[in-house]
Structures are given as structure tokens and as C-alpha cells.
């Protein structure tokens, strides 16, 4: 495994709050003040109604496992096999992530299992939200 080759996000002005939140141990989503929809990925307007009246909030970190693949091929910064998952957040949006503290097998990764957010520091500027089985 070679962490230096791992793909790292490059934040933009519209997404910086999300990455700042992750570094501070918070999963930050946005909610539209006009239509109340919580959404992800970050942008300074509501993708459901177009309103610019949106607010950043800290999500609960509660989620369920929505779907995944287990990659069996080599990838920079990862040791195969590893799962790439999409989780359903309690607030509504879904996001891609990795599942930690859990065997990377179909037997252990059961759809709809309860998960909670954790944070994985990549370097001084980037911390990734990841998920682990709830109560693990």
C-alpha cells in the first residue's frame, strides 16, 4: 500500500466548508431554507428548487449501507480486496465512502446494516469521512 499515490480531493470555494468540517470531526451537509431539502455534494444553492438560501449543518453521522462493490484489483493507496460503498444518510442524501472496522466481505457487508461516521486523516489539509458498523 502506498498512501502517497492515493487520490486526494482538491477543495473548491463551494466545497471548502465540507472539508473543513471533516477535519474538525463533523459531517457537514447543507439544507435549503426554502424547501427544507438536505443535499450533497456541496454547492451554494439548492439543487431541488434553485434557492440560494441554504445553510450548512452538522449531520448526525447515522447511516445505512445502501450498496457497494468489493474491488479485487490493485489501486493506488488501497490493498485489495476493499469495498467501495454508498451509504444512505439519516438526513436523506447518499454518499460514497469506505467501511472501516469490518471485514471486506459480502458476508460481513450486509445491505441496510446500521453505520456511523468516522474520520480518516489523510494529511494536514484533508480528512475523509468514512463509516463503521454502528456501535462497533
Amino acid at each position: 500500500m502506498n498512501d502517497s499515490a492515493r487520490a486526494k480531493p482538491l477543495p473548491t470555494p463551494e466545497t471548502q466548508h465540507y472539508w473543513d468540517g471533516a477535519a474538525a470531526g463533523e459531517l457537514r451537509l447543507q439544507r435549503c431554507q426554502a424547501c427544507s431539502k438536505a443535499y450533497f455534494p456541496p454547492r451554494p444553492f439548492c439543487p431541488a428548487c434553485g434557492s440560494r438560501g441554504v445553510r450548512v449543518f452538522a449531520a448526525s453521522g447515522k447511516a445505512t449501507l445502501y450498496s457497494y462493490i468489493i474491488n479485487h484489483r490493485a489501486a493506488p493507496g488501497f490493498t485489495a480486496p476493499y469495498a467501495i460503498a454508498v451509504v444512505q444518510l439519516a438526513e436523506g442524501p447518499r454518499l460514497m465512502t469506505n467501511i472501516i472496522d469490518c471485514p471486506q466481505t459480502p458476508e460481513a457487508l450486509v445491505l441496510d446494516m446500521a453505520l456511523e461516521v468516522a474520520f480518516q486523516k489523510l494529511d494536514d489539509t484533508i480528512t475523509l469521512p468514512v463509516f463503521r458498523p454502528a456501535g462497533a
Binding site: P9, S67, F78
Partner: peptide, 29 residues
């Protein structure tokens, strides 16, 4: 993959590595 768009920021860091790691993600559901 650009590091600054939605794929680069919110998918690639989790180890997506070409279409076989992305396109089948909805399938189990």
C-alpha cells in the same frame, strides 16, 4: 480524473479506479 470536481473530491478518494469500480455500484441494491 480531476481532483477538484465531484468525482475527484467525493468518489476517487475512496479508491475508485476505473469503470469496473464505479459502474456496478448500484447493482447489489
Amino acid at each position: 480524473v480531476r481532483a477538484d470536481n465531484f468525482e475527484g473530491q467525493f468518489e476517487a478518494p475512496y479508491g475508485t479506479n476505473g469503470r469496473p469500480t464505479q459502474f456496478p455500484i448500484p447493482l447489489l441494491r
